[in-house]
């Protein structure tokens, strides 16, 4: 439970950076931190104390394998979400660089030509 709480507070840190900070790069970092927290949460779901990797080897019998092996599905989900996160992050950084070219600032409050 402590782990879940810590994980949740990590997510809150990301959310804080995302909402409060004005600097674009800090906002991006906030998103990245939140993403790590969510990925970590998914890993925690599959976590088992003293678990083994979910690979069934020749000299392992099925009953103990089922008891000790960790859940492999969250790991697969996390890999997918990491790939997605990579794509999002690359796009965010690229747009941030372009925004800096256009506006000459990283401050979100000065980037406000659109309103309404």
């Amino acid at each position: 439970m402590t782990l879940y709480m810590l994980n949740f507070s990590l997510m809150m840190v990301g959310m804080y950076a995302l909402i409060v900070k004005r600097h674009i790069v800090k906002k991006i970092l906030g998103i990245a931190i939140m993403e790590y927290a969510v990925n970590h949460f998914l890993i925690l779901i599959g976590f088992k104390k003293a678990g083994v990797a979910p690979i069934l080897t020749k000299d392992m019998d099925l009953a103990t394998f089922i008891q000790t092996a960790v859940d492999p599905l969250p790991q697969a989900l996390v890999l997918t979400s990491i790939v997605i996160g990579l794509g999002t992050l690359a796009l965010m950084v690229a747009i941030a660089i372009r925004l800096y070219e256009r506006y000459g600032t990283f401050d979100m409050h000065e980037i406000n030509r659109l309103r309404g």
Binding site: L18, I24, K27, I31, M34, E35, V38, I84, T88, L91, M92, I95, A96, R98, L99, R102, Y103, I111, N112, R113, L114
Partner: peptide, 19 residues
């Protein structure tokens, strides 16, 4: 400039929603 700004706003909020 406007397109990028809109895209960035959308991106930040969309990424947040996805998470």
């Amino acid at each position: 400039a406007e397109e990028l700004e809109a895209s960035f706003k959308y991106l930040i909020l969309g990424a947040f929603a996805s998470l």
